[in-house]
Simulated assay, not measured.
Amino acid sequence: MTNQTTDAVAHKDHGLDRLLLFSDGVFAIAITLLAIELHVPEGWDGRWATLWAERWPMFTAFALSFAIIGVFWNTHRRVFARMTGFSNGVMIFNMLALAGVVLMPFATTLLYEQPRNGEGAWIYLSLVAAVGVMHAGAYGWAAFAADAIRPRPHRAVSATVVVTHALMPGLACALSFFLMARGVGLLAAATALALALLIAGRVWVGRRFGGTA
């Protein structure tokens, strides 16, 4: 462990630690609540094929939401990994992100109740995109307003991290929807290209200005 990393860990305050503990609890509860909505169909004959035929939208939505909440938790971990101080701005953005996370089980229900209705999918996608923007806001506030990221990254690196956190969740979720739908190959290709450019830009900026955030 470098001296800079040691100093960063040593100067983390108790307010930030409590915020992280609370956030981890919210993620754990939200990901657990996904399974509560899984129900055995009435009159099930005990065969897996029948269960899948009747409940595949539910299982697919559960798997997607489980993966997304897991990604959000990992993003949250990365956002706060080098944050050294609690600030009200970070707290507000974090609480807004958690509000979106706890709504994921409800949005998942919308996704499988009417799998052919685009309204539920758009609501789900909007929620995922909003959580990504809130995570970006938390990091951006810590990096630019509170100066609480240590070691201090180059401003270009911090800006790229903010853009990546803000756009990647929504783009990745949209790509998964397009890949499962029919007749939207062009949209899937455009979304995949946008994701590739986003990742390439993040890598280039990291190499150009040194370090990651």
Rank of each mutant, 00 (worst) to 15 (best):
F22H: 09
A30C: 05
V161H: 14
A130I: 11
L187W: 07
K12M: 11
H154N: 10
A107H: 13
L96W: 11
G137V: 05
G118Q: 13
I123K: 07
G100S: 05
A129H: 04
C173T: 13
V205T: 12
A67C: 11
F59G: 09
G140W: 12
G137Q: 09
D13F: 01
T191H: 04
R152A: 03
A49W: 01
W73C: 08
R152E: 03
G211P: 04
M95C: 11
Q114V: 12
A97W: 03
L96I: 15
D45K: 00
W204M: 14
A28H: 10
A107K: 10
R18H: 08
W204Y: 12
G120Y: 02
E37Q: 14
V9R: 07
T2Y: 01
A174T: 05
I29S: 06
R77H: 15
G201I: 04
H135G: 00
L127M: 05
L38E: 01
T32E: 05
L179V: 13
L96D: 01
A200C: 07
T164E: 13
R116G: 15
D17G: 11
G140R: 10
F80T: 07
T160D: 02
N74P: 01
A67F: 15
I36P: 03
I36V: 14
A174Y: 10
V203F: 06
V79D: 01
W122N: 05
V40G: 00
A138V: 00
S23A: 15
L103A: 15
R155G: 11
D45H: 08
T164F: 13
E54Y: 03
Q114D: 14
F66G: 09
A172D: 01
G206Y: 07
A166W: 02
F93D: 08
I29V: 15
F209N: 03
A129K: 04
W141H: 12
